[in-house]
Amino acid sequence: MSEELLNIKNLKTYFHTENGIVPSVDDVSITINKGETLAIVGESGSGKSVTSLSIMRLIDSPGKIEEGEILFNGKDIVPVPMKEMRALRGNDIAMIFQEPLTSLNPVFTIGNQMSESIKLHQKKNKKEAKKLSIEMLQKVGIPRADKVFDSFPHSLSGGMRQRVMIAMALSCNPQLLIADEPTTALDVTIQAQILKLMKNLVTELNTSILLITHDLGVVAEMADRVVVMYAGQVVEETDVFTLFQDPKHPYTKGLMDSTPKIHELKDELSSIPGAVPSPLDYPKGCRFIDRCPFAMKKCAEEHPNLEEILPKHSVRCWLHEEKVVDLHDTKSFA
């Protein structure tokens, strides 16, 4: 279980825009073990998608990985030449995206797009690639897979398209699957099916998952461990049970509080006031300070570090500097 597959060390991905430097990913360190599902949670603009694209080295200009290492099976893939990187992409590290309609090329058949990577990475001929593609389509529960093989993306439903994306991503048996909001664009009923499918398949194939989401329901369903990101940084990291039971960062607590719970009667949904600060102008101290009900003098002056305050539970917050504080029954977000 504890064998390390991916180890991101102090990753910094910055975008050099006309208005200044945007530190989308700012000193992020994450590890994923073999067979494990790690979820990255955060609002839009927290840097979770940029982190995943950095792993694939798919950051386009004006973005750039400035610093840090991305160790995949112990080897740093940041400096490797593109040719070597392409051999990893789609083969050892595969990715599925949020919007299955726009993520599939509208002018090529499903079969064409699926066979492409199989032929490339597994050195199979056209016929073998077709056979494997159809097998994969059947595996993800697509009826009449041989027919779907010859159809175009627009003739499939959203759920079907995402199944195709999953089949495509898993066709070369990757060690790591990066799923960037895989169910966000789908109906709730289809979401559950897709999550279940992903879970079954990765267990079967022993694939690790990096799950990018803002949906805590999906996290609870899928993840072993959770990383909470805010304003380009990791603010809390722990296992999924601890995170839900005992969140230690005020931001995580805010996220939990703003998720409606079925057994609670509430007149109003709570939310975290304010918005993520502009990345061009992060506060000197804690980046969450403007929205935090626990903000202290120190928070404005010094930037907190990510500290392991309890075994396997790290938090970036001054609140726990001297002693670990229980956030339950404390001030909540009105």
């Binding site: 694939m56 798919l58 593109m82 392409r86 051999a87 990893l88 992409r89 789609g90 083969n91 595969a94 990715m95 995206f97 919007e99 726009t102 993520s103 599939l104 090329n105 509208p106 492409e116 990577s117 490339l120 990475h121 994306m165 495509m168």
Partner: peptide, 17 residues
Amino acid sequence: NQDYVRTAKSKGLKNRI
């Protein structure tokens, strides 16, 4: 800039393709 181009890149295809 379309998503499917990103998908194609993520499959490890050559830039030319």
